[in-house]
Design a protein around this nucleic acid. Structure first.
Length: 814
DNA sequence: GGGTGTCTGCTTTTT
DNA sequence: GCAGACACCC
């Protein structure tokens, strides 16, 4: 007991000392992404690794703290936040609206648990969805605590924590502790093999689709045996379930798991091994979950099993920011929390510290159109600030130009580019902005491109290392067999497959054995033997050489580095750079196997130099971030809300899209700028588009409509589309509003009559109306002559715009 | 086994 | 409109 108190008190002293004491610190209120410098105090004793016995009730220190009004770190919280932090016992749901200090609550809560001595660092389970969130949480706890918290070994993503648990008890679920974690690419190659083995037409039933299907089963915690009959039918003429089973068998043989298995196998472990679960219950005194609204069924079950022990489960989330339904997230989990955990306390955080009044009002009004929500009312003490703007532009090109101009103007007024972001619905929208920004020399960065470890060169290099580390890694071996090209193509691979299957050997061993037979031609045999000998040699060096050097050696001697040096394409240089980065990253791990164990789970894009740039990213990617100024282009029916989501998921889909709009708006601190274009090229075809219904969802009094000066130059064709939007007061005449009033189900599909030179052209009804030679008028391209009719598309030779393919619905006969 | 031409099918994305 | 996958040919 004495030790515990000493530990807690020492911690307390550190926590106090680490708080900035200037007056400004009083306003150090929760602001995600705030630039509070991480203060680290040099403490002689590694406090957090000190053992502490069971916490005692009502220690002198605790009582003294209570009299003094609690430790300083609690004073920085508002009453609701403080309640969320101090309610340690029992289930707790923190409904944290956008910008209300969610991360602050989570991190302070952890600090509070540690400071009060209720639990030691390794007795806290803190789960996030992304590595980034985990890292941020760790850093912020460290700032509060004033020292490193390496001892918090159970702070991480669902997947990383599961992997950790699974490695400890791998044998219990039929795996070896050094199992490989496959990524999507490996997964798909494996599934292709399974599909082929079942004699299913790969073209009609692509492996991607099966991967997606299996993934969604795993998201729901469904094993091959539990696949509902109807869903098994949905792939490969009813072979979906069989393929799933076959795939799982293959994984076990390969001693591998995919991402979904990390959860599934851990769940199985908990269910089938009560003593393992009991051990977990003993260990975890407190469980904290970030972004609870994003949990899927498997994660929910996982949490529920773990939380059964001590019931000290604290989930933080915002139902209004649930935007991952399409990948299995169940908003239901958060809506149902109080039923799932009887006696649960719910704390609402509604005081927003991020956005100005008008932005908050606009976002709140927008989201209030959703039905499935718990309901929160965000408020701020800050000023009203600028109204969000809505700007209509002619097409996506003008949209990019308008955004570029705005950013330039802001920049001239001293606005940081880092504080501006363009948030799009779909990544294809990014290109236009990139092109424009390049043209005007505006520095930008695209966030959310291909992940570092998804790049071909990284995966190749990792495959080499995996082969060195584990002879039986067939997928890795298959990948590098002929990379670089060494004349071992499909024929040799097929030979290896057959031989391996016959002998029950992994590919590498099959290759070795095959070289001793006459079944392989001399040339490939020599090459293959050389490759195998190389691997044997490299493997012998594992313990002799630092793993970094070994990696370099392998990449050089295999000819892999040379392959890219010989490559004359412009990307080659960057790829070599990435390889270097990979080797550099290995430094942080003690040996090759621990590097490989972690790489698939935690490897991220290493964003190099931090320079002042505009961010371009998807709305999904922007969740959890904030910017001074946010640009929200593409608010058009069909694009946002996405027609596909509407078609597939109806009202639920629409509500998820609306939440995405809410997320977009609430990223802005001071300025939100919405755009919609009248014409957009979608899948190569120009389409006339309507303003998004979400624009109609905005409260007129908090929004300003901006007529873009440049737009009028296109007036000749565009007048009709802008007519209703000159003044916001006339918003109730916008197409979106009228549509809503009519309750019509037509969603921006009908071609509006176009006004040309004062006369209204006949509305076309279909491609049948058109024949080659027909004169037509298009809203964007003007007059032209039909050259060819192709379904509902027309090849038109425009008088001024040249040859284009256009949808017949968007041209008028002349 | 490697290069060229045609066909298809296109949100969001973490781990 | 364009990328990625596949088939076909050398």
């Amino acid at each position: 007991m004495r030790v515990r108190r000493a530990w807690a008190e020492k911690f307390q002293a550190v926590a106090w000392a680490s708080q900035p004491s200037s007056g400004a610190s009083r306003h150090l209120l929760p602001q995600a992404g705030e630039g509070v410098p991480a203060r680290r105090l040099l403490v002689g004793v590694p406090l957090l690794s000190m053992p502490a016995p069971k916490p005692a009730q009502g220690s002198i220190a605790a009582r003294a703290r209570a009299l003094a009004g609690g430790p300083r770190y609690l004073e920085a919280l508002n009453p609701e936040q403080r309640e969320a932090v101090e309610t340690l016992e029992g289930p707790l749901l923190v409904l944290a609206g956008a910008g209300t200090g969610k991360t602050r609550v989570l991190t302070t809560r952890i600090a509070h648990i540690l400071a009060s001595g209720e639990a030691r660092p390794w007795e806290i389970l803190a789960v996030t969805f992304t590595n980034k969130a985990a890292r941020e949480m760790r850093e912020r706890v460290e700032t509060l605590v004033g020292q490193g918290v390496e001892a918090m070994q159970w702070l991480g993503t669902f997947h990383a924590i599961s992997a950790r648990m699974l490695r400890r008890h791998a044998e219990l679920v039929g795996l070896k502790p050094n199992f490989t974690i496959l990524d999507t690419d490996d997964q798909i190659r494996l599934l292709k093999q399974a599909i082929k083995a079942e004699n299913i037409d790969e073209k009609r039933w692509p492996a991607r689709q099966l991967a997606w299907q299996i993934d969604s089963w795993k998201n729901r915690g469904v094993t091959p045996a539990q696949v509902p009959a109807g869903e098994a039918m949905s792939f490969g003429n009813g072979k979906g379930g069989e393929l799933y089973a076959l795939y799982q068998e293959r994984l076990k043989i390969l001693n591998a798991v995919d991402f979904g298995d990390l959860l599934m196998e851990t769940l199985r472990l908990f269910r089938e091994q009560p003593d393992v679960l009991a051990e977990m219950h003993r260990r975890f005194k407190y469980i904290l979950v970030d972004e609870y609204q994003d949990t899927n069924v498997a994660q929910y079950l996982w949490l529920r099993l773990l939380a059964q022990g001590r019931r000290n489960l604290c989930c933080v989330g915002d139902d209004d920011q649930s935007v991952y339904g399409w990948r299995g997230a169940e908003v239901e989990n958060i809506l149902r929390f109080e039923k799932d955990f009887p006696g649960a306390k719910v704390v609402r955080l509604e005081r927003n510290y991020r956005s100005t009044g008008h932005i908050l009002a606009a976002a709140s009004h927008l989201i209030s159109h959703n039905e499935d929500r718990l309901g929160k009312t965000l408020f701020t003490d800050g000023g009203l600030g600028e109204k969000p703007t809505v700007t209509g532009v002619w097409d996506s090109e003008e949209e990019a130009r308008a955004v570029g101009d705005e950013i330039e103007a802001l920049r001239r007024r001293g606005h940081q580019l880092n504080e501006a972001a363009v948030l799009v619905r779909a990544s294809f929208q990014m290109r236009e902005f990139e092109e424009r920004f390049v043209a005007i020399g505006l520095p930008y960065r695209v966030i959310g491109g291909p992940r570092f470890y998804e790049r071909a060169e990284i995966r190749d290099a990792l495959a080499y290392l995996r082969c060195v580390a584990q002879e039986s890694d067939d997928l890795a071996f298959e990948r590098i067999l002929n990379t670089p090209k060494r004349g071992l193509g499909d024929a040799t691979l097929q030979l290896l497959f057959d031989y391996g299957r016959k002998q029950g050997l992994p590919l590498m061993l099959a290759a070795r054995a095959l070289c001793e037979t006459e079944e392989i031609k001399p040339k490939p045999r020599a090459t293959l033997r050389a490759l195998i000998d190389d691997f044997a040699r490299w493997r012998a060096l594992i313990d002799a050489k630092p793993h970094q050097e070994l990696a370099e050696l392998v990449l050089d001697e295999s000819g892999y580095t040379q392959m890219w040096k010989d490559d004359k394409t412009p990307e080659a240089e960057g790829r070599l750079e990435n390889l270097k980065e990979l080797v550099r990253a290995m430094e942080e791990f003690p040996d090759l196997s621990s590097f490989l164990e972690h790489v698939s789970l935690v490897m991220e894009n290493s964003e190099g130099a931090v320079s002042d740039r505009v961010s371009i990213m998807t709305l999904h990617g922007a969740k959890g971030l904030e910017f001074e100024t946010v640009f929200l282009p593409g608010w058009e029916e069909g694009l946002f809300p996405s027609q596909r989501t509407l078609d597939d998921n109806g009202r639920a889909g629409l509500e998820e899209e609306r939440r995405l709009a809410y997320v977009g708006l609430t990223r802005a601190r001071r300025r939100a700028k919405i755009y919609f274009a009248t014409n957009r090229r979608i899948r190569g075809l120009w389409q006339t588009t309507m303003p998004s219904r979400f624009i109609d969802d905005l409260p007129a009094k908090n929004v300003e409509v901006v007529e873009r000066a440049g737009a009028s130059q296109y007036g000749a064709y565009g007048v009709s589309r802008f007519a209703g939007l000159d003044r916001y007061s006339s918003v109730y005449e916008t197409p979106g509003w009228k549509r809503a009033q009519n309750g019509s189900q037509q969603r921006g599909r009908s071609a509006a009559a176009t006004v040309i030179e004062g006369r209204v052209l006949a509305k076309s009804t279909g491609a049948a109306d058109f024949t080659p030679g027909q004169r037509v008028m298009h809203a964007k391209f003007g007059p032209g002559t039909v050259a060819r009719v192709d379904g509902d598309k027309l090849a038109v030779e425009f008088d001024h715009a040249g040859a284009k393919m256009v949808k017949s619905a968007f041209v008028e006969r002349m």
